[in-house]
Amino acid sequence: MIGFPGFDSTLFDDLLRVQRQMESLFGGPLTSAIRSMGAAAFPPVNVGTTPEEVDVYLFAPGVDPNALDISLQNNVLTVAGERRVIREEGASYYRKERFDGEFRRVLTLPEDVDPDRVDATYTDGVLHIRIERKESSRPKQIKVN
């Protein structure tokens, strides 16, 4: 998410740098989110919030969007699918860095998301899931009489 034009990219940078520093100092964080998967998970995920919605971005290039299984139970989001890299037989491979196989990512979102108001789009290999927050938890202007 860092470096997206029109967005204060340093925020994610800072957050991630602190995460990385903690992990390198202590050989992994002493406390980590119970559903976190470490640095090499596929697809990598960024999450951002506004007062109105929570935005989840999964960087999953080369995936058939129709074969994705996305579910939201209360505030727990699960995205499962697979990416099959077709290997050419008889060719000599010099590098095989890309993820190949099934994946499942489970994320705990803020508790006030509304499971009935979700939409997902897949563009250029990025899956963007947008979940609105419940009306009751949005900030309200309070007038002083």
């Binding site: 998410m1 860092i2 470096g3 997206f4 034009p5 029109g6 967005f7 925020l11 994610f12 940078d13 957050l15 991630l16 995460q19 640095a39 998970a41 990598p44 995920v45 960024n46 999450v47 951002g48 919030t49 506004t50 007062p51 109105e52 919605e53 929570v54 935005d55 971005y57 960087f59 994320l107 803020p110 563009t123 250029d124 990025v126 963007h128």
Partner: peptide, 22 residues
């Protein structure tokens, strides 16, 4: 290549595994 991701105005990061889009 540079990634271009649509983001709502005023978004704050909550969690980030992707550190750059260039």
């Amino acid at each position: 290549g540079v990634a271009d991701i649509p983001m709502p105005e005023g978004m704050e990061p909550l969690y980030a595994e992707v550190r750059a889009t260039h």
